[in-house]
Design a protein around this nucleic acid. Sequence first.
RNA 1: CGGGGAGUAGCGCAGCCCGGUAGCGCAUUCGCUUUGGGAGCGAAGGGUCGCAGGUUCAAAUCCUGUCUCCCCGACCA
Length: 488
Amino acid sequence: MAKRITDRKEDYSQWYLDVIKEAQLAEHSPVRGCMVIRPTGYAIWENMKSALDQMFKDTGHENAYFPLFIPKSFLSKEAQHVEGFAKECAVITHSRLRSVEGGVEVDPNSKLDEELIVRPTSETIIWDSYRNWIQSYRDLPILINQWANVVRWEMRTRLFLRTMEFLWQEGHTAHATKEEAVEEAERMLEVYRTFAEEFMAMPVITGTKSESERFAGAIDTYCIEALMQDGKALQAGTSHFLGQNFAKAFDVKFQDQDGEHKYVWATSWGVSTRLIGGLIMTHSDDNGLVIPPKLAPVQLVVVPIYRGDDQRKLVLEYAQPIIDSIKAKGISVKLDNRDNFKPGWKFAEHEAKGIPLRIAIGPRDVENNNLELARRDTLEKSIVPSAGIAEYVEELLDTIQNDLFKAAKKRMDDNTREVNSYEEFQIEIEKGGFIYAHWDGTAETEEKIKEETKATIRCITVIEDPQPGTCMVSGKPSEQKVLFARSY
RNA sequence: CGGGGAGUAGCGCAGCCCGGUAGCGCAUUCGCUUUGGGAGCGAAGGGUCGCAGGUUCAAAUCCUGUCUCCCCGACCA
């Protein structure tokens, strides 16, 4: 058997790249750091989008679209924000090419008066619009989301996890009160947690970011953090309470019921195609991709097995009503009736592509009114009667979805530890995983830990009964343990 | 953006040191036999060797530049 995918234990990065290639999710483009998302990868993104989009609408949001280009002057309005993004902006300086011998060149006569920035995020262009949309408390809240691409000029890229251009959604809301805005940021964090756990079957830890990890321009950044199979953490989604920073930068005020003019309160929140990277690294194995049923573009594949045309006809006729009955349940089914591949080859291919369930039907099954059912997650095969198969498959897909979550949750729990000294921390962090430890709350200590161990504070979790202690590094008082990990 | 490695057919690679006009496996096309875990035999097609210059009678091979990928750092969703 030709082994196309590197084992995880041998070379985790190579494994990740091999899985993407074999599942045909994406490939590199001629442009550094950019990717071509292939149909299978894009179908997963579409499934993520439609689930999230529904959740956004269920929480009162509407979609809109703002421009790709942002006037340079807008970027300089919010100081923290500029500082955060200035180093990674693509700048448009000219508007034309002209023909020269052997090709084209930038036409120097087309230099723009004001250069345009390709959006790294859209707070500035959106808040410029909000200024015109908001006059009275009756105009609030504004609850808008947009699905878009953004560009960040990254130095080091990895497919899905960090690309120069990526697809995402960004929610931008405006509120009359601080309480309402905080509530919104927390609500959307909860939407992300629900999505990650219920659709992606990816358990996450929620909390807030330390000052150094916070979004540029935010008062508070809430996040969901997931733990990958190699013990590294992945920031999977963020929700920001922006305070009045952007309202002040763009002069967005409203007249309240008391007649006073007040600055509005803001949030923004987003998840990106990075989630696909998280999905891959949460469930997949040495045979390739594993996709939870709720996000799988194809949930079940049927592979007919036969010798000669007579058997082929017999098997396909037997399979058709089975396929129809499963489809009637709203399950997406693909019949792989290609005649130029043998069953074994198809099995391997569908495993590499992560299709959750496989049915194989051969003459023996036709004779006995059976079929062979194989689970992608456990690789278990069983012979089951074809009667009532649609109900059985429906339940089994639910079971797989739940089992994937349980397995991922167990792995996260097994790799989450608490330490009480810096010595212990340095030993434990080498093993990977989430580590809870006391921290004095200062950026200096955080920086020292990062330099010495490459670990960062992933989030400050909300704990019902926080146990005070002393910082493992400085010995100063600490209100509670916070979550550390090495991260992507 | 710094250090290291790489780019030859769709994929994986050899050839490069020592220059002589490109090869292997898989895949593809056709035919026959096959089909319960990556099938066999036969025939065929496919590459201006990442790109651009240079040296040379002659460049995949030597030199210069450049683009892209991988790993490690600094920066970040």
